[in-house]
């Protein structure tokens, strides 16, 4: 049977009504996002890509485009030392803060998932900062020093790290400590996601593990954590995006101020170039976390695959032996009566 015939004979599975309905519901759920992208994101995205190659003057009578090639990028790197510096600081801070937020959120989620009194109340308490940090209230709190731990001597921490790391890294670590409260406040949504994932872990797994004598610690490492792994990646990506686009981010402020700067060097073109460079950096960070936390096949899958491979190999060998045997038999049959013994009695 040829490959073509095999393909043709593959049975066609008709999509059931239930599946169709579910697909429709899925499209409906994603529709707000699609509308949002089409209405508000797509055009500005393409525009900003175009703008970054121009110096743009926005006069009351329209925009004047002056093509500058990579001029905006050159200006950013050569004449605006603050932007590259802030990019480096941002990379360090994000790489440090994301694991802290994720670990903290996971710990709190596990605690909130346990059987404790007033569980709903505590869940509410840990989600409240999400509402606060999403508005101008956070800016006011930060300006009042609410994001720092007053008794923490950040300068000593920076001095201590400065011995082992470059100053920019030490400063980033210091910055992270000085904004520790705020960092932890960013964990609300992540806690919620972890909590929902924890509630979906099959209790039978824990039960079986306990019957086999597994401790809580072992259950966490062998059951909880592997099950949560996709959620960890999801939360890591969410946290990177959140840290990169919230109001406290200096780079966002810089891009915004460059965008509305009326000076001849800056403006929409310059800000677009900044934004695209920043977007590239964010993509790289997200890619880094995806590489680190992306789903790798677990050990049982690996073993099963290996076993299947071995089975296939054995089958192949078996078939080969059979084929050889058959060939040999045919050969023998062909040579029968061809050769006679010396005494003429018959075959060898």
């Amino acid at each position: 049977m040829s490959k073509k015939e095999k393909k043709q004979k593959k049975p066609k599975i008709k999509v059931g009504k239930l599946e169709k309905r579910e697909a429709r519901a899925g499209y409906f759920f994603t529709l707000p996002w699609v509308i949002g992208v089409v209405a508000f994101l797509l055009v500005p995205l393409c525009q900003s890509f175009k703008f970054m190659w121009y110096n743009i003057r926005i006069t009351p009578n329209g925009m004047i485009f002056n093509p500058v090639g990579i001029g905006n990028f050159a200006n950013i790197w050569h004449e605006d030392p603050e932007f590259p510096q802030q990019i480096v600081t941002y990379i360090w801070q994000t790489c440090l803060e994301v694991p802290i937020i994720i670990v903290f959120a996971l710990m709190i989620a596990i605690m909130l998932n346990g059987k404790i009194k007033m569980r709903a109340f505590f869940r509410l308490i840990f989600f409240l900062p999400v509402i606060i940090v999403s508005g101008p209230v956070m800016n006011m709190l930060v300006s009042e020093g609410a994001a720092t731990i007053p008794s923490m001597n950040v300068q000593s921490i920076v001095a201590a790290f400065d011995v082992f790391f470059p100053t920019s890294v030490a400063n980033s670590i210091g910055e992270m400590f000085s904004n520790m409260i705020m960092t932890l406040w960013y964990s609300g949504v992540q806690i919620l996601i972890f909590l929902s994932a924890l509630q979906k872990v099959d209790p039978a797994l824990y039960e079986a593990a306990k019957i086999d004598g597994g401790s809580g610690w072992e259950c966490f490492w062998k059951i909880t954590l592997p099950t949560m792994k996709p959620m960890i990646l999801l939360n890591a990506v969410y946290t990177v995006i959140f840290l990169s686009s919230n109001e406290q981010n200096v780079l966002i402020t810089m891009i915004e101020s460059a965008m509305f700067s009326g000076t001849k060097e800056k403006g929409y073109g310059y800000a677009s170039a900044m934004a695209w460079m920043y977007a590239l950096v964010i993509t790289l960070i997200v890619g880094l976390f995806a590489l680190m936390l992306g789903s790798k096949k677990d050990v049982y899958d690996k073993k099963a695959k290996k076993f299947k491979k071995l089975q296939k190999k054995e089958e192949r060998i078996k078939k080969r032996v059979i084929r050889r045997g058959e060939r040999h038999a045919k050969k023998v049959a062909r040579n029968k009566h061809k050769y006679t013994t010396y005494d003429g009695s018959g075959d060898y």
């Binding site: 579910e22 429709r24 519901a25 409906f28 759920f29 529709l31 707000p32 509308i35 949002g36």
Partner: peptide
């Protein structure tokens, strides 16, 4: 599901 999705779309 349909109700929730419709509500979301409508609000959007």
């Amino acid at each position: 599901k349909l109700l929730v999705s419709m509500t979301l779309v409508a609000s959007m």
